[in-house]
């Protein structure tokens, strides 16, 4: 296996992805990710110098909306599935800076 995924990498990716893995899951994730990356490294065989990255497959541009209000009061729909709400707002654990 050419790629080796360290514990710190898995922990870091866990912070980015907001996933908490058990020790067992971490070990599996390290192995999975390493073998996936080995496989993905196959792309390095290709010379892509000068090739423009293609994010959209068709050259469709300039899809716009006119600036006209169309939506009614959406609070009821917005909160229809909320795990916890109060006074027409979602309730979350207190967000603090520190």
């Amino acid at each position: 296996m050419a790629n080796v995924i360290r514990d710190e990498t898995i922990d870091y990716v866990g912070i980015l992805a907001k996933l908490e893995l058990s020790q067992e899951e971490k070990e599996a994730a390290k192995k999975d990710m390493a073998s996936m990356l080995d496989y993905i490294d196959k792309l390095n065989e290709l010379d892509t110098t000068g090739v423009e990255p293609m994010s959209h497959v068709f050259p469709v541009n300039n899809v716009f909306r006119e600036d006209v209000v169309e939506n009614p009061d959406g609070s009821e729909d917005a909160l229809a599935n909320a795990p916890e709400s109060r006074d027409s707002a979602y309730v979350v654990p207190k967000t603090v800076d520190q």
């Binding site: 939506n71 009061d73 959406g74 609070s75 729909d77 917005a78 909160l79 006074d87 027409s88 707002a89 979602y90």
Partner: peptide, 8 residues
């Protein structure tokens, strides 16, 4: 009102 100017 909170969340009144919202949509999906």
């Amino acid at each position: 009102k909170p969340n009144s100017h919202t949509c999906p």
